[in-house]
Amino acid sequence: GQTTVQVRVPYRVVGLVVGPKGATIKRIQQQTHTYIVTPSRDKEPVFEVTGMPENVDRAREEIEMHI
């Protein structure tokens, strides 16, 4: 079944991970077949990644490449 993982990043890289108009996070979602919730600016900088476990792992690696 599907799993949801929280990926915490430093505040300063949230914009990098999301990309211009969300382009980068969309690409990560498409490439890894996951659904990613982006943290809002006034909340903790935690991305929520949902999908099959192996896909979630890949998405987390993609996010962490920006750190």
Score class of each variant (00 low, 15 high):
Ser40Ala: 14
Pro53Glu: 07
Pro45Asn: 01
Val5Gly: 08
Val56Lys: 08
Lys26Ser: 07
Lys43Phe: 08
Pro45Cys: 07
Thr3Phe: 07
Glu48His: 11
Val49Tyr: 02
Ala23Lys: 13
Thr34Phe: 00
Glu61Asp: 13
Val14Tyr: 06
Ile25Thr: 03
Thr34Ala: 01
Val17Trp: 04
Met65Thr: 14
Glu54Arg: 10
Thr34Pro: 01
Arg27Val: 05
Val9Met: 04
Arg60Val: 14
Val46Ala: 04
Val13Trp: 12
Lys26His: 04
Asn55Cys: 06
Phe47Met: 02
Thr3Glu: 08
Gln31Leu: 12
Gly51Val: 03
Val18Met: 12
Arg8Ala: 05
Val18Leu: 11
Glu62Trp: 10
Tyr35Arg: 15
Met52Ile: 11
Glu64Arg: 09
Val13Asp: 14
Thr32His: 07
Arg58His: 03
Thr38Gln: 10
Thr50Met: 08
Val18Gly: 02
Val56Asn: 00
Glu61Trp: 09
Ile67Arg: 06
Gln6Trp: 06
Val13Pro: 02
Thr24Asn: 15
Ala23Ser: 12
Asp57Lys: 15
Pro20Val: 07
Asn55Pro: 00
Arg58Lys: 14
Glu62Asn: 04
Ser40Asn: 14
Pro39Gly: 07
Val18Tyr: 10
Val37Ser: 13
Arg12Trp: 12
Val13Ser: 15
Ile67Lys: 02
Thr4His: 08
Glu48Pro: 02
Gly51Gln: 02
Val37Ala: 10
Thr4Val: 07
Pro45Lys: 08
Gln31Glu: 15
Val9Cys: 09
Arg60Pro: 04
Tyr11Met: 15
Glu64Gly: 05
Thr38Tyr: 14
Val7Asp: 05
Val37Trp: 01
Val5Trp: 01
Val18Cys: 10
Val14Glu: 06
Val37Asn: 08
Val17Met: 03
Gln30His: 10
Ser40Lys: 12
Glu64Thr: 02
Ile36Gly: 05
Arg60Ala: 03
Tyr35Ser: 15
Thr24Glu: 09
Val14Asp: 06
Arg60Gly: 05
Ile25Val: 09
Ile36His: 06
Arg8Met: 06
Val7Met: 07
Pro45Met: 07
Gly51Asp: 04
Val56Met: 07
Glu62Thr: 06
Arg12Glu: 15
Gln2Pro: 11
Glu64His: 10
Met65Ser: 15
Met52Gly: 05
Ile67Leu: 09
Glu62Gln: 14
Pro10Glu: 00
Arg27Leu: 04
Lys26Arg: 12
Arg8Gly: 02
Val46Glu: 02
Val14Ala: 06
Glu64Gln: 13
Met65Ala: 15
Asn55Lys: 04
Thr24Pro: 00
Glu62His: 05
Thr32Trp: 00
Arg8Ile: 08
Val14Met: 11
Ala59Gly: 05
Val9Ile: 06
Val18Glu: 10
Pro39Tyr: 09
Gln2Met: 14
Gln29Cys: 08
Gln6Tyr: 15
Arg27Asp: 04
Pro20Asp: 11
Arg41Ala: 14
Gln29Met: 15
Thr32Ile: 00
Pro10Trp: 01
Thr24Ala: 06
Lys26Ala: 12
Pro45Arg: 06
Lys26Asn: 07
Glu61Lys: 14
Thr4Lys: 08
Val14Asn: 00
Ile63Tyr: 03
Asp42Glu: 11
Gly51Cys: 00
Arg12Cys: 08
Glu54Cys: 07
Tyr35Asp: 10
Thr34Tyr: 00
Arg8Asp: 04
Met52Asp: 12
Ile63Thr: 04
Arg41Gly: 11
Lys26Thr: 05
Gly51Thr: 00
Met52Thr: 15
Ile36Ala: 06
Arg60Gln: 04
Val7Cys: 02
Asp42Tyr: 11
Asn55Ser: 08
Val14Ser: 05
Ile25Trp: 02
Ile25His: 05
Lys26Ile: 00
Gly15Glu: 12
Val5Arg: 09
Gln30Glu: 13
Val18Lys: 06
Ile28Met: 04
Val14Cys: 01
Gln2Lys: 15
Pro10Cys: 04
Val7Asn: 00
Asn55Met: 06
Arg41Cys: 13
Thr4Gly: 04
Arg60Met: 09
Val9Asn: 00
Lys43Tyr: 07
Val5Met: 07
Val9Asp: 01
Glu61Arg: 15
His66Ala: 15
Val14Leu: 11
Thr4Cys: 03
Pro10Ser: 02
Pro20Gln: 11
Pro45Gln: 07
Lys21Cys: 10
Glu44Phe: 00
Thr34Arg: 04
His66Ile: 15
Thr34Val: 02
Gln2Glu: 13
Val9His: 00
Asp42Arg: 08
Asn55Ala: 12
Arg8Lys: 14
Thr38Asp: 10
Thr32Pro: 04
Ala23Trp: 06
Thr24Ile: 02
Thr3Ser: 09
Gln30Asn: 07
Lys26Gly: 02
Gly15Cys: 05
Met65Gly: 13
Gly1Val: 10
Lys21Met: 13
Val49Glu: 07
Asp57Asn: 14
Ala59Tyr: 00
Gln6Pro: 09
Thr34Gln: 00
Arg41Tyr: 10
Thr50Arg: 07
Pro20Ser: 08
Thr50Gly: 04
Gln31Tyr: 05
Asp57Val: 12
Arg60Lys: 13
Glu62Gly: 04
Gly22Phe: 03
Gly19Asn: 04
Val46Pro: 04
Gln29Glu: 10
Thr38Ile: 11
Thr50Asp: 01
Lys21Pro: 01
Arg12His: 11
Ile25Cys: 05
Glu64Lys: 11
Ile63Trp: 02
Lys21His: 10
Ile63Val: 06
Arg8Tyr: 11
Arg12Thr: 11
Met52Glu: 11
Val17His: 11
Pro10Ala: 03
Ala59Pro: 01
Pro39Cys: 10
Val46Leu: 09
Ala59Cys: 08
Thr34Ile: 01
Glu62Arg: 09
Val9Thr: 01
Asp57Ile: 12
Gln31Thr: 10
Asp42His: 11
Thr38Asn: 09
Lys21Val: 04
Val5Cys: 07
Gln30Leu: 06
Arg12Met: 08
Gln29Thr: 05
Glu61Gly: 09
Phe47Arg: 03
Glu62Tyr: 10
His33Phe: 07
Gly22Tyr: 05
Val37Lys: 15
Ile28Gln: 05
Gln6Lys: 15
Ile36Lys: 03
Gln29Ser: 11
Val56Ile: 11
Met52His: 06
Asn55Ile: 04
Pro53Gly: 06
Val56His: 03
Pro20Met: 02
Gln6Arg: 15
Val7Gln: 05
Val9Ser: 02
Arg12Tyr: 13
Thr34Trp: 00
Arg27Gly: 05
Pro45Asp: 04
Arg60Phe: 06
Val56Pro: 05
Glu54Gly: 11
Leu16Glu: 12
Val13Gln: 15
Val7Glu: 08
Tyr11Pro: 15
Ile36Gln: 02
Lys26Asp: 08
Phe47Asp: 00
Pro10Ile: 04
Val17Glu: 06
Leu16Lys: 11
Glu54Ile: 08
Lys43Arg: 12
Glu62Pro: 00
Leu16Cys: 10
Leu16Tyr: 10
Ile67Thr: 13
Leu16Asp: 13
Pro20Glu: 12
Ile67Phe: 07
Thr50Ala: 05
Glu54His: 09
Thr3Gly: 06
Val46Trp: 04
Arg58Trp: 06
Val9Ala: 04
Gln6His: 12
